[in-house]
Every structure is written in C-alpha cells, then in structure tokens.
C-alpha cells in the first residue's frame, strides 16, 4: 500500500522533486523540503495558513495531496515577491500594519493575491468574502482589508502603497 512516487513540482520557478507516498499532503511534502514559509495551522482546511497557489489558483496545501501537484506550479509567499521586489500586497501589509504575529500572513497574502487577480477592484464585501477561509486572531482583519484595497489601488495605477 501507498508506494512512494517521485513527483516533480515547480516551486516559485525552481524544480523540486518530491518522493512521497499517496497519503502525504502537499503541505507536509513541501515543508519537509524546507519551504517552511508555508504555515500549518489546522491541517483540515479551516484556517488557510497553508494556502499556496497551484497553477495560479489558491488551495489549502493541507487538503491537497502531493501527488496531485505532479507537473504543476506552486507559488508560495516567497514567489509572490521578495524584499526589494515586493508585491504591492506585501508593501501594503507593511504600510498598514496588517501583520501582527505574522503567522496567518503568508496564507492571507496568497488568498488576497488570487482575489485581486479575479477582481482588481473589490468592494469591502468582496474582500471579506475572499478572505473568509483565512483565520487571523490578532488583527480583527481590519488592517488586512485596508491593505488589500490599498494594493488594489496601486495595481490599478490609482496610487502607491508606501
């Protein structure tokens, strides 16, 4: 049962080979490879801390079997932007104070990134709905909403985040 298989995943542009059995989640497999920027909060799709983009679409990596990522592209928070080349969302999170303990932040930015791709001009209600799968216990979400809308404005060319 459950033989290992080598799956090839492109993570933030680099090819990674993961030898895993069928029952290994993408979260477990990638964290084991050192992609510890993917956080683990509940392992059952309730908190969104482990969100990554899989071929550009947001998934909870704790609910995704590693085998299902074979041949696909994974983007973690580090693939969204780097210091010096930060994504507008990352800049806006800094500017507005949207990160407190920071543990939900990678997953939150992944979800927000996908939201803004689908909807460049989200209303507050759209932002709330778009982030309802990402739990945060520190901020009351208010600054996160601000950050997402600030980044959206910058992406639409209507102003600059920080």
């Amino acid at each position: 049962m459950s033989n290992e298989k080598v799956v090839t995943v492109t993570v933030n542009g680099s090819t990674v080979k993961l030898a895993t059995p069928a029952h290994r989640t993408l979260l477990e497999a990638l964290r084991h490879e050192g992609f510890v920027e993917i956080k683990c909060g509940c392992e059952k799709g309730d908190c969104g801390a482990c969100a990554v983009l899989l071929d550009g679409e947001p998934v909870d990596s704790c609910l995704t079997l590693a085998w299902h990522a074979d041949g696909r592209e994974v983007t973690t928070i580090k693939g969204i932007g780097q210091p010096g080349n930060a994504d507008p969302l990352q800049k806006a999170f800094i500017e507005t104070g949207a990160a407190q303990c920071g543990y939900c932040t990678p997953g939150m930015i992944i979800a927000a990134r996908s939201l803004l791709k689908d909807n460049p001009d989200p209303s507050l209600a759209d932002v709330k709905r778009g982030l309802s799968g990402n739990l945060c216990r520190c901020t009351g979400y208010t600054r996160i909403f601000e950050a997402v809308q600030l980044a959206a404005r910058e992406l639409r060319g209507e102003g600059e985040a920080a």
Binding site: G34, V36, E37, K39, C40, T76, I77, K78, G81, Q82, P83, A86, L89, Q90, F93, I94, E95, G97, A99, G102, Y103, T105, P106, I109, A162
Partner: peptide, 21 residues
C-alpha cells in the same frame, strides 16, 4: 511607524519555532 518586524513576516522569511530543522 511601520513595525520593524513587518517586512520579514510579509515575505515569509520570519522563522517560527516549528520552522527550525
């Protein structure tokens, strides 16, 4: 003032206790 711990957190670089290998 933007907090000085914010950049490392938004870039996924902050290392938490469970992240050490």
């Amino acid at each position: 003032k933007p907090r000085n711990d914010a950049p490392t957190k938004v870039h996924g670089k902050a290392i938490y206790a469970g992240d050490f290998y």
